[in-house]
Simulated assay, not measured.
Amino acid sequence: MSFKPLEQRGIPLDRQLRTWRELDVEPIDPDHTDPYTRCRIITMNGIEVEAILFSHQFARHCPDPQVKQQLARTRYIEAQQQKAVNWLLPGVSSVLETTIAYEQVAVDLTAWVARMEPDPYLQQAYQFGVLEDFDHLYRYANLYEMIEHRKAEEIVDGLTEVMPGRHTPMHHRDPVDNVREPYDKTRTDPLSKLHALTIMSAEQQTMNFYMNVGPTYMEPIARRLYQEIGLIEEEHVTHYESLVDPGETWWEQLVNHEYNECYLYHSFMEQETDRKVKAIWELHLNMELEHLHIACDLMRRHDGRDPAEVLAPELPNVLTFEPNKAYLRELIATQLDLTTLGTGYVRDAHERFERMQQNIHTDGGAPSDQVLAEHSDRFGRDYRMETEGEHPVPELRQS
């Protein structure tokens, strides 16, 4: 049965404020919880953080005090939602364990979006990015075994393969080649807008996480790896945010944010296996329905347009966390040697790419390669030797 958020009313805003007791959610048990429950938690935290940051930016550019007040009212509730969601993660998990879970999110969320994306150009953007997140998962898996002497498979539970993707040192490109062509807001499928906002938010969360946790390690190799991949996540945020039409008004962006939250909370509520977590998804969905109606009223009053002009009348099929092994192996077989040139993709190394590679990689090599070398020295083997099949890393052709 279709779900039509524009026709549904949620919990009135003045009844959404929660007490400290209500915000004190019980965290998941990392040893007995579906890994995809953790993935849904991480995803929704990124979505809520983006909603809060967007609202702050909107307020900083808005001259109307009454609009600022309304944004502040809704934003405080969004901030409570973010705390409830993020605090579902267990405090017993190490930073590296959470990192591996973040990369599992990046891999399976982006792969699913790429499979479902109706626009070929946007689909290629997601296919390109997911092969890099795939390799980040592999590099962190090597580091995890070195530092904590455990296997990443224990975290991803076999749902996501841990093996090489596009060679991480090759992710460093001239910044101008990270900017893509935006979709056209007047012609694109509403689902494409939700996809772009979702993946941008997830990558932004990962970028922020690595920026903050990287220097908390004492091991030099860990500090270096977080620094390198943190810079690549900055590239990914540039890559994905540039897909969004810059001509969207603040009001359009506001309703898109709220609609996307309804879409994701509804999706995750439909598939959640943890009863307590599912109750939070349901509660937040009913809150977001009201946030959406508030945003729609603001758009009608201040933008002079009906939000139905830019939003889908009903939610698309639920966004689903599920294994994407065959799809990713197909991408590895066909797209591993791509890089970017301008707003497109090429298989040949070009001058800007080669110059960036020469300028950033020192004689000691990239930290992501140092991790593999140290892992091999310590254990006498490459991590991938225990995975199903090996995948050579093709090099870009010299132009």
Rank of each mutant, 00 (worst) to 15 (best):
K4F: 12
L6A: 09
P12C: 02
L13R: 10
Q16V: 04
W20G: 15
W20Q: 15
E26Q: 14
D34K: 01
T37D: 01
I42L: 11
A51L: 03
I52P: 02
Q57W: 12
P63W: 03
D64T: 06
Q69L: 12
Q80H: 01
Q82A: 15
V85G: 02
S93D: 13
S93M: 14
T98M: 12
T99Q: 10
Y102M: 13
A111P: 08
Y126L: 07
R139N: 08
N142Q: 14
I147C: 06
R150W: 04
E161Q: 14
T168Y: 07
H172K: 09
R173M: 14
N178M: 13
R180S: 00
Q204T: 14
F209R: 09
T216H: 08
E234T: 15
V237R: 05
Y240S: 00
Y240H: 07
E241S: 15
S242H: 11
V244M: 07
V255H: 00
N256C: 11
N260P: 00
Y263V: 06
Y265V: 01
Q271I: 05
K278L: 09
N286G: 09
A308S: 07
L311N: 04
E314L: 03
P316A: 09
N317Y: 13
F321I: 00
N324M: 14
D337Q: 06
L338I: 01
G342F: 00
E351W: 15
I360K: 06
T362A: 12
D363A: 15
G364F: 08
S368N: 03
L372E: 15
L372I: 13
E374G: 08
G380Q: 01
H391S: 14
